[in-house]
Design a protein around this nucleic acid. Structure first.
Length: 558
RNA sequence: GCCCUCGUAGUUCAACGGAUAGAACUGCGCUCUUCUAAGGCGUUAAUGUAGGUUCGAUUCCUACCGAGGGCACCA
């Protein structure tokens, strides 16, 4: 429909000799302004040497009748508003009910996209930044799937590097069990603190770091192997709760040697400076970064080159997206500049999407102080809080429901705002399960689901007569028109890689449903009940698919 | 010092250069002898400052003020 209207507008504009160029066409914010609206007359009035309204009226006179459009109006300063026919809207309801992938499109059809996100480090806590990367990355992966792409999920984990040495130092010092993932976080915190506090310990840990890389000390290898496994196993448990299943796992222990090989092959790109090997970003307006330390160890920069190469060899992609905190934005630009010189084919396909930091009133959270709210503890706390309500619900298993609600509450808070911006963490707000929240969407879905179930058990057939204006109850007009926008909302969010654009839509849609639900009795025994239930069925499928794209579970009972 | 983000109701967030700047939370009032009140209905309240570009600016540009992040061997 969207393309059809654009085409019709372009042809009509030819009459005024201003047909060239992209035609703006949007869903007006206010439903009273129609189902589609174009500001093209305002945009081109000057070129056509006409007043905007005059041009708009001329265009409308040229349009004639368009199938599926009941009314075309000129409004405001010169907007051209299109109103769809009940039949066209009813078709959306039917599609929603029949197609499992309702809402999907072809924007990225055939494209192979790898999305890398979460990226926690073994031996360290799973902190809130990982939770954010996971929520955003998972949702972007699903948005891409809904826009037709072939998607692979990748996780990149730092199983070597200074943080590992710090943790192992802590394990030995504190005498904790490296098989216990919870103890490793504490060991790391102790090591990180000691590293900063005195030079002797720093040298000790640096030496340990070298041993981790070359695996020359059997005793350290033993701690390392146990700790790595314990961490990874534990992360898997969290992914299961969060609803992520990775296709590929990459490790720094693998990317480090690859990266080193690449760097050594390009002595003209990377130069020596103070004993280290660096890339001078200044030549492209950036800053210098160290790729190999004076001790000969690869930094994260070098590992990232190795990673990019490894990814493209593992699964040749058209696009590779990496989701990390925006504190790495400038870092990424330098790595990308270096990559352009040494791996140009790969560099042209990689993209960095950054998310903001989750902050408390006191400032940035740090995983180095050891005294933080981790991603895991946040999940646990919210699950506990949700159990009170879950116990009073209709759910078959209150504990599972509580966990689903906790995941919804956290993810929604992350996904409701533009991803580059910091999120001010408000515990009270996160714990609240009302209003503009994940549970609100879940609740709307559960109510719709139960209503359809009830209709089924009462033998009410679901009918939504195609092309019959009576199929849409007058009271549901707004709801149906919003439902019709779902596929385009998904496409819009996918085009911008911005889950919050879909979140905004779903909130508005759920609110429209809740409002309608409060004022209408669906199963009222009249023939129209069949139409109303069919609409509820379409609503629940829209909410279900929408929640799925956000990576939020949609329980059927609450 | 240089670079990158960002300043919108009391608070946390929306608004693809367009129509009356939307929600939610908080406050106050109403609403379950009708399918789930985690719901619904009503009510108050905002674009940091100064310029500029534009028919039109929260959105683009410049300066200032304020917040956050980054800038050589951490990730």
């Amino acid at each position: 429909m969207k393309e059809k209207l654009k085409e019709a507008l372009a042809i009509a504009l030819e009459g005024a000799h201003v047909g060239a160029g992209d035609i703006p066409l949007e869903h007006p914010t206010e439903l009273e302004n129609g189902d589609y609206s174009s500001g093209v007359a305002l945009q081109r009035a000057k070129r056509a040497a006409m007043a905007p309204r005059t041009l708009a009226e001329f265009v409308v006179s040229q349009l004639g009748t368009i199938e599926g459009v009941s009314k075309i109006e000129v409004a405001g300063a010169g907007f051209i508003n299109f109103y769809l026919t009940p039949a066209a809207l009813a078709e959306a309801v039917e599609t929603a009910r029949k197609e499992d992938m309702w809402g999907s499109g072809t924007l990225n059809a055939g494209k192979k996209i790898m999305v890398e996100y979460t990226d926690p480090n073994p031996f360290k806590e799973f902190h809130i930044g990982h939770l954010m990367s996971n929520a955003i990355g998972e949702s972007i992966a699903r948005l891409m799937q809904f826009s037709g792409a072939d998607v692979k999920r990748a996780n990149y984990q730092g199983d070597v590097g200074p943080h590992v040495a710090k943790a192992i130092w802590g394990v030995e010092k504190l005498g904790v069990d490296p098989h216990d993932s919870a103890q490793l976080g504490k060991a790391y915190a102790a090591g990180a603190q000691a590293y900063e506090s005195d030079a002797a310990t720093k040298a000790e840990i640096d030496a340990l770091n070298a041993k981790v890389y070359d695996r020359s000390d059997p005793k350290i290898n033993k701690i390392y192997d146990a700790g790595r496994k314990a961490s990874l196993t534990h992360f898997e448990e969290l992914y299961k709760i969060l609803g992520t299943k990775f296709d590929y796992s990459f490790f720094e222990s693998e990317t480090a040697p690859r990266g080193l090989t690449i760097v050594k092959k390009h002595p003209k790109v990377f130069e020596e400076s103070d004993g280290a090997v660096v890339f001078k970003g200044e030549k492209v307006g950036l800053h210098t970064r160290v790729f190999v330390t004076s001790k000969g160890l690869p930094t994260y920069e070098t590992k990232d080159l190795g990673l990019a190469q490894m990814k493209s060899e593992t699964w040749p992609f058209d696009q590779s997206i990496t989701v990390t905190a925006n504190e790495q934005s400038d870092y990424f630009k330098v790595v990308l500049a270096a990559m352009k010189e040494v791996l140009p084919d790969v560099a042209s396909k990689v993209r960095h999407i950054s998310h903001g930091m989750m902050r408390f009133a006191e400032g940035k959270m740090s995983s180095r102080t050891g005294n933080v709210i981790t991603g895991e503890s946040l999940l646990t706390d919210l699950t506990e809080a949700a159990k009170v309500r879950a116990a009073e619900s209709r759910a078959d298993n209150a504990d599972i429901l509580a966990q689903q609600i906790a995941v919804a509450a956290i993810k929604y808070q992350i996904l409701k705002q533009a991803s580059g911006k910091d999120i001010i963490f408000d515990r009270e707000r996160a714990l609240s399960l009302e209003g503009d929240s994940g549970p609100y969407l879940q609740y709307a879905h559960a109510r719709a689901h139960q209503l359809v179930e009830k209709a089924g058990s009462e033998g009410v057939a679901l009918r939504f007569p195609k092309g019959d204006a009576l199929g849409i109850p007058e009271s549901a007009n707004e709801l149906v028109r919003l439902l019709h926008r779902f596929p385009e909302s998904v496409e819009y969010a996918a085009a911008h890689s911005e889950p919050h654009l879909l979140t905004n839509y779903l909130l508005e849609f759920a609110a429209a449903f809740n409002s309608w639900y409060a004022q209408v009795h669906v199963l009222d025994g009249t023939p129209e009940a069949a139409h109303k239930v069919a609409l509820v069925d379409a609503v629940r499928r829209t909410l279900k698919n929408g929640l799925w794209i956000l990576g939020i579970p949609a329980p059927e009972k609450m």
